[in-house]
Amino acid sequence: MAETATHTADHASEHGHETSTGLTNNKLAMWLFLGSECLLFGGLISTYMLYRGRVSDGPHPMAIFDIPFTSVSSFVLLMSSLTMVLAVSSAQRGDDSRTNLWLTITAVLGATFVGGQVYEFTAFIREGLGFSTSLFGSSFYTLTGFHGIHVSVGVLMLLSTVGIIRKNKITGNKAEVVELVGLYWHFVDVVWIIIFTLVYLIPS
C-alpha cells in the first residue's frame, strides 16, 4: 500500500470515501437504528390500536381528547422539524452561530411540546383517566409517554450539541453530528405524525 498511515474505525469514517460504501459509519448506524425504532413504535401503536376501545372504567378517548390543544402542540413539533433542518443546513455551510441559534429554537419548540404533554397528562388524570384505570389508559400513556421520553432525550441532545459546539469540544465532523441529531429529531416528529392521526383524529 502506498499510504504511510492507515486509519481505522471511527477515525476513517469521518472521511466517508475511505469506507467500502462511501458512506460514513455514523450515518449508516443511525439509519439502521431508526429502521429498528420503526418496529418499537409499531408495537406500541399496535397495542394502543388493539386496546383503545376497551374502556372498562373511566373516561372514553373521545370524551377527554382536547383536539384543538393537541393540534397546536402537534403543529409546534412539526415546525421544530423545519428549524432543525435549517440548523443542519447552517452547519453544512459552517455557520456556527446560525447553527446554534436554530438548534436552540428547535430545543425550545421540543420542550414546549413536552410541556404540553405534561399538561395534557395532568388534565387527563384529573378527569379520571389513570395509568391503571383501563386498557385504554395504560396503552395511551405508554405510547405517548414513550414518545415523550424520545422527545425529551432529543431536547437534551440538542442542548448538549449547542454546548459542545460553543466550547469547541466536538469530536468528529461537526456538520455530521448536527445532521445525526437532526435525523433522530425528524424521526421523532414523523412518529408523532402517525400518533396524531391514529390516536387523536380517528375516533375509536
Binding site: W31, L39, I45
Partner: peptide, 19 residues
C-alpha cells in the same frame, strides 16, 4: 444514498407487515 432508504424502509415495511 439508496442504502439508507433500503435500511429504513425495510424496518418500516417489516413493522407494517408483522403488526
Amino acid at each position: 444514498s439508496k442504502i439508507f432508504t433500503f435500511l429504513f424502509y425495510t424496518g418500516l415495511g417489516l413493522a407494517l407487515f408483522v403488526y
